[in-house]
Nucleic acid binder design. Structure first.
Lengths: 261, 261
DNA sequence: GTCATCCGGTTCATATGGTGGACCTCAACT
DNA sequence: AGTTGAGGTCCACCATATGAACCGGATGAC
């Protein structure tokens, strides 16, 4: 039985790369075999065979003690080779460091990944109360979270609709406080204000503020954002943080244009 | 007909990842379909189907104008997620920048990739005559080139023999000036001197000098190296460059220990 | 102008290689 | 010493990858 819209050919490659994407966000702890079986929906022998193939290429490595699977050296090598073309973190790293230092809160760089946003890097500030709602490698649908919403609002309307159509099925189950009509209103407010605000919509009390990063041609490269407890993101501090973000976003956008005109 | 030692299962995954590794070093120009057919030894439809699978996962992208294939955004994302575990470039970037600035020559960070060395990053110095014998993504067998030889010489003898056995078949065809007995002598000299020297063995007139980087547990993390024209690497300058390298290597090794004790 | 060549890309009958239910082994708890 | 759940493997079956032959376009030689 053929899926009409399904991928054609090399299915095991798709499955292997699905596993790779599942291991990515697991961070320091890695992923166990059953984790991956559950998350992927594949059978155990299949997962194991694919992991062995990924391990042969060093894209995945297995901790001999815990038996957990982690991203391998080859992922890092490929990333280094891809960075002249796609490197956002290299370009934005200084800006994120300044954001964390100047605000005292936690700063993030986020990239678009299809209809989702993925957090590339997280830099903690000095303020003692820190939200851990967003960690490196975590991904949410576009519009869910401050940096993520900033990117969605920066897309042309046609693309916004395509993204909403893509993510709508997932929203109710995973993000009860979100729905397409709420996202559309969020986009309006974001465009009017010039920055995106997440008023504790994912984790109560954990607020976020973000701005999009655009390339020279106007396309969205990613977003910068800050997270803090609710009390640190009320007016007038919200406006101060927005100004900080705008300043750093301008700096990053200048560097983006310089790199790839 | 089964290969006795061959990989078992998920062959198309191996082939897809072979293509990924072939696209990596092509840098800015990318790779054409025929390039990849030739380099991989696979049939054209097979290569195309695997590339389409890689493109579905955004590990590869195709330039619509040139039709050439490049590393995709997903490679970069995976690299960013793997860098807390494997990030050598982040740790060594400042040291490489100082090396290029202080010496005026071109500086490199290299990593081990099985029996080969792969160049992660290249930083040009101010001196107007620059060798382009080594670029980011290029790989040579361990022992071929200065940084590469520094790594080989830093391995335990048993591992050196395993590497030599692995690469010996390839040497005569691709590197006429190298052979196992020459590499063994090079290793001796490197261990005695404390640094590796490549006296224009790959490209005449293009000399290199390198030192290994060791982790806290003594294993080899990579190498730092410098390349210059022959006249800039004679005594006493050779000793000066070796001292520069030793200083920066010590700095990097300190940071390596701090990151992952 | 046309014939030859090379490139990127696709088709479809064939058979290779991937799949997954059943199974093994080991360690940690009852 | 029995039970659970983890990691890992086996092998008969049939879904899926393979590759010779093909298309269509671009370039260029004469």
């Amino acid at each position: 039985m053929n899926r009409m819209t399904g991928p054609s050919g090399a299915q095991s490659v798709d499955r292997a790369l699905l596993l790779l994407r599942l291991v990515g966000p697991r961070g320091e702890d890695g992923a166990s075999l059953v984790d991956l079986v559950t998350a992927s929906g594949l059978e155990k022998p299949t997962v194991r065979r694919l992991l062995m193939a990924l391990m042969r290429s060093r894209l995945i490595e297995q901790d001999p003690a815990t038996r957990h699977y982690h991203l391998g050296e080859e992922c890092y090598v490929l990333g280094a080779l891809a960075s002249p073309r796609h490197g956002l973190l290299e370009i934005a790293a200084d800006a994120v460091a300044r954001l964390a230092r100047d605000s005292g809160d936690t700063a993030f760089v986020t990239m678009r990944r299809g209809s989702f946003a993925i957090c590339l890097h997280r830099q903690e500030g000095s303020y003692p109360i820190r939200t851990h709602a967003l960690t490196a490698g975590a991904q949410h649908p576009l519009g869910v979270g401050a940096g993520s919403l900033a990117m969605l609002a920066a897309l042309p309307d046609a693309e916004v609709e395509a993204v909403l159509a893509d993510i709508s099925p997932h929203l109710p189950a995973d993000y009860p406080d979100y729905a397409p009509h709420i996202l559309r209103a969020d986009i309006e407010r974001t465009r009017a204000r010039g920055h995106a605000l997440n008023p504790g919509r994912i984790v109560a009390g954990s607020w976020g503020i973000g701005v999009a990063l655009r390339r020279g041609d106007g396309t969205v490269a990613g977003a910068l954002s800050l997270a803090a407890v609710e009390s640190r993101m009320q007016p007038p501090r919200e406006a101060e943080l927005a100004a900080l973000l705008a300043r750093e976003a301008a700096e990053v956008e200048t560097r983006l244009r310089r790199e790839r005109p």
